[in-house]
């Protein structure tokens, strides 16, 4: 938030900026209830489930009575629920995301796994933006021609095939048959992440391509395009500057939503490709029935997603001046 404000300050300072500034403040204010609501929801989903919260924390493992008492103390299970949440969220603000069954702090686990997930997500985002946008824009400009049909069909196919099936196909084709990429496992650096990133990005890439294509085609029919041409501007300028900025607006909105999908989808990708990331950690914890770890990581992921959304909202406000009045 501090970062956001400092970014906004120079914008707020100039004449154009006051609207933007007000818009930002509005967005931040909306962020707060959502933040508490979402973290509460995750907390509630686990602990409010009918049944024994102890079981939620440790699964079906048989427990010695002292352990049960210790757990009850640590998680304040005898306190009213809202107090449990309050304690929990205060801990989160201090960076304490709970610990696993053996007392190993979740935060350490997350810091350990974070680099891989971040790299994976960034790479995937890059693929998605670069390949998806380019394909979509080119398809839109050459509407009706071969490239356009190619993009439309291939994106439809990619959207339909579930991500884990795509992952396997990728493994078989690129890993086994062609041998370009390692089938699974993580090695230092970025290369071993390329295939997983491509798989992770695939669905979003397809959406982005379609969305930018549609958006561009729609904008090419707009009145202001006719005006721009009447002004004697070159076609590349008309498309590249006038329509592109308008066309990007819905794409940016989608990209905002998509960061969350990347986080959620990373779970599957990391599982298939056996990458030691946060997603895999959640999966392992879920399988081992370590409720506290699942909540901890889930809370963290959701917070990251919310901040990413906020940042993109800001970007949206910069791109489309009309939005600042909403």
């Amino acid at each position: 938030m501090v970062l956001g404000c400092s970014l906004a300050l120079p914008l707020v300072a100039d004449e154009e900026g006051t609207d933007l500034g007000r818009y930002l403040i509005r967005r931040v204010l909306q962020f707060i209830p959502v933040f508490f609501g979402a973290t509460f929801l995750i907390f509630a989903l686990v602990f409010l489930m009918p049944g024994d919260p102890i079981r939620a924390l440790s699964g079906d493992k048989p427990l010695a009575p002292e352990v049960v008492v210790a757990l009850q103390e640590r998680y304040h299970l005898d306190e009213p629920f809202y107090k449990q949440y309050a304690i929990y969220i205060t801990n989160v603000f201090q960076g304490d995301f709970g610990s696993d069954f053996r007392g190993y702090p979740v935060r350490d686990l997350m810091l350990d796994r974070l680099p891989v997930t971040i790299r994976l997500a960034l790479l995937a985002f890059l693929f998605e933006v670069v390949i998806g946008l380019t394909a979509g824009v080119v398809a839109g400009v050459r509407k009706g021609k071969f490239f356009d049909s190619l993009v439309l069909v291939s994106t439809l196919v990619v959207i339909a095939i579930p991500i884990f099936v795509l992952g396997f196909i990728g493994q078989i084709v690129f890993g086994v048959k062609l041998g370009w990429f390692p089938i699974s496992g993580y090695r230092e650096g970025w290369y071993s992440l390329m295939l997983p990133a491509l798989v992770l990005a695939s669905l979003s890439l397809a959406y982005v391509a379609r969305l930018s294509r549609t958006s561009l085609v729609e904008n090419l029919r707009a009145d202001y395009v006719r005006t721009a041409r009447a002004k004697g501007l070159s076609t590349s300028r008309v498309i590249g500057i006038h329509t592109l900025r308008n066309s990007l607006i819905p794409v940016v909105t989608y990209l905002a939503v998509d960061l969350g999908a990347l986080m959620g989808g990373a779970i599957i990708t990391e599982t298939i490709f056996n990458l030691p990331g946060l997603g895999r950690a959640v999966f392992d914890a879920a399988r081992a029935q370590e409720g506290a770890v699942v909540i901890g990581i889930a809370t963290f992921l959701v917070i990251v997603y919310m901040i990413a959304n906020l940042l993109v909202d800001v970007l949206y406000g910069v791109l489309d001046p009309r939005i600042r009045y909403e």
Binding site: V46, A56, G260, F283, R287, V294
Partner: peptide, 23 residues
């Protein structure tokens, strides 16, 4: 606001969270 909150939770993640504790 309520839908905003729901939007923030990715389906797969939420699914894992809930289903890992259901009997």
């Amino acid at each position: 606001r309520i839908t905003d909150i729901w939007f923030v939770i990715p389906t797969i993640l939420g699914g894992i969270v809930i289903l890992s504790v259901t009997r």
